[in-house]
Structures are given as structure tokens and as C-alpha cells.
């Protein structure tokens, strides 16, 4: 399960609402904004940030936001199985903590 480098261009939808989470991403260059189902911007990220995995922490398998590239750059993508394996290895206490953090993020949507 190795990583891939992918160029991104403005307007490119990296993932959409309802899409299966099969890959997670690290933004290396450029910027990405996240939108809810009403097409309202809910957040944006800068380089060296991981994204596209929050729902997995809550045990969901599909994206609840749309990620759109705003300025050109690159992402490193990797299989979501990497995150799933890490989550499976967490103890119950840690899992609850992560879930509550994920809740806070997802409730903003």
C-alpha cells in the first residue's frame, strides 16, 4: 500500500459528498477547500496537512464533504486501508477520544 504523487489543478474535485473513502491525502503544495451539500465553504487547508480520513474515525465509509482544489499543487495519496488498520489497532479509550474529535469536526459541516 504505497503512496502516489498526484498533481491537482484549480476546480478539480478531489472527492465528492457520498463518494466511497478509498484514498486519503496529504496536501503538499497548493490549497484545497471543503464544501458541504449546500456548496458552502466550511474550511480550507494549507500544505503538509492530511485530509479525507475524518469520517473513517467515526466508522463511516463515505465522504461527507466535497474537496476542491483552489490553487494548483500536488497531493500525496494513499489507500484508506492504512488508516483503517491504524484505527483497528487503537484501544477503546483512544477510539472514543478520536471519535469525539471527529464528531467536533463533522458537526461543523
Amino acid at each position: 500500500m504505497s503512496g502516489s504523487i498526484e498533481p491537482i489543478v484549480p476546480g478539480q474535485v478531489i472527492f465528492d459528498i457520498g463518494q466511497q473513502i478509498d484514498k486519503c491525502f496529504i496536501l503538499q503544495k497548493g490549497s484545497v477547500h471543503f464544501f458541504n451539500s449546500k456548496e458552502e465553504k466550511i474550511s480550507g487547508i494549507a500544505p503538509n496537512t492530511m485530509f479525507g480520513f475524518t469520517e473513517l474515525v467515526k466508522g463511516k465509509t463515505t465522504h461527507s464533504t466535497k474537496a476542491v482544489c483552489i490553487t494548483p499543487g500536488t497531493v500525496v495519496s494513499f489507500s484508506s486501508d492504512v488508516i483503517k488498520k491504524k484505527l483497528a489497532a487503537y484501544g477503546e479509550d483512544n477510539k472514543l477520544l478520536l471519535e469525539s474529535l471527529a464528531d467536533q469536526l463533522l458537526n461543523k459541516i
Binding site: M1, S2, N48, S79
Partner: peptide, 14 residues
């Protein structure tokens, strides 16, 4: 041999 992507190591800018 390829191993699982180690995002922790990768996110370390150094």
C-alpha cells in the same frame, strides 16, 4: 518490498 504508507514519518518535514 513495499510497506504500508507511513504518513507519520512523511508528515515530518525534516
Amino acid at each position: 518490498m513495499s510497506s504500508d504508507f507511513d504518513f507519520g514519518e512523511f508528515l515530518d518535514e525534516s
